[in-house]
Design a protein around this nucleic acid. Sequence first.
DNA 1: AGAAGCGGATAGCGGCACTATCCGCTATCC
DNA 2: GGATAGCGGATAGTGCCGCTATCCGCTTCT
Lengths: 217, 217
Amino acid sequence: MRIGELSRNTGVSVPTIKYYVREGLLPPGELTSPNQATYGEAHERRLQLIRALLDVGGMKVAEIADVLAALDDPERPLHKVLGAAADHLSNGGVEHDDAESAAARAVVADLISRRGWRTNESNPAATDLSKALAAMDRLGHGAFVEVLDDYADAAEQVAEADLRYVDRRVAVEGMMEAVVVGTVLGEAVFNALRRLAHVDASAQLYGTDGSQERKTS
Amino acid sequence: MRIGELSRNTGVSVPTIKYYVREGLLPPGELTSPNQATYGEAHERRLQLIRALLDVGGMKVAEIADVLAALDDPERPLHKVLGAAADHLSNGGVEHDDAESAAARAVVADLISRRGWRTNESNPAATDLSKALAAMDRLGHGAFVEVLDDYADAAEQVAEADLRYVDRRVAVEGMMEAVVVGTVLGEAVFNALRRLAHVDASAQLYGTDGSQERKTS
DNA sequence: AGAAGCGGATAGCGGCACTATCCGCTATCC
DNA sequence: GGATAGCGGATAGTGCCGCTATCCGCTTCT
């Protein structure tokens, strides 16, 4: 397959494919002459993965490059790949160091120990959680912590479902990718489901119909 | 309070505050002379809200402007504000029209009717969900639908917790904001919890410790 | 032979969230 | 009452990001 066909099959423009190759997201095609190359099914799949992580998962190109490098490295242990993927879902940014942040960190530490989670507070997810809770506290929504355990229950269920799914595909060669896809796209799936459930729950409570008027911008 | 103090109190630079005013995120200060103005606590709170939606919620400035305009409009009914906020968590983009997308839409429609959710398929969240499932299908993870109901169960629980939280603060004037904050920041909270739970669940399964080595980029 | 397509390289674009600079004015300190 | 710091308002510029446009000389198809 040549680049034009690859482009047609995936809906990704030729210059964009070239760009992905330059950025190391996609391996170059196999050269048949000094300036001709062919691409295989692996390239097609890889392109689909890139577009999914980009469009659905909202990851950045550079982050995707990291994760794919980890995926391609056969020496990389599973939990490192997971770490690479999860890290990139983190929103980065800098943490305040005010009273609310300190309180939020304490809440998170308590939550982790209370639930017996085998992780520690240096986990980027824990930092993100602290930041979110601190922001809520600053906004006068400190009481949100009262529903944290409901959230954590649901999170555990989802995590178990994820693991069950990954574990089901015993083929080891696909497992790494399944973890990445499950983590990143699973997040998008859950967020969409949550918003759907919100509409229903609020309809139940406030008696509106669930239809969404589109804004006339 | 003058703009410098507002800046110091919130950690947002003076030019950035001016920028937010220009973009309509923040109302201008009250003029005491033709070119002097003072800001109150409302401005401080509003700035915190802006930063939270921006940094933690990952929203864009223009989207925040929309949501805040909806919040400020006393005529705007609750569910419209919710719609405005939820819409902006949508990833936008264009939907393919291939076999996987059609199948995904069918799965979503089925899910909605099976769970009796009072919403319809034109809801942007439903579109997002279809897109995510279609992407998974294209990647050979069509079997992910098998855990969709586990996800939906958890999503319902979270949505109920959200509603319970919002409903608890009977004060109507804060309710709108509570909905927005709960929807947007709640998403960040849940995603972080899910990643924490992942680490624990995979530790349980694969016997690694849960510590996260930081990448040495 | 001619046209279309290719690989590779470099430069440019549009969107976004700021940031820098300048202006004339004002509040404040001494 | 004069210096100085800060102010409101406006305009232009910056850095990053994900592409996109253009050009080159070469190959493949017809």
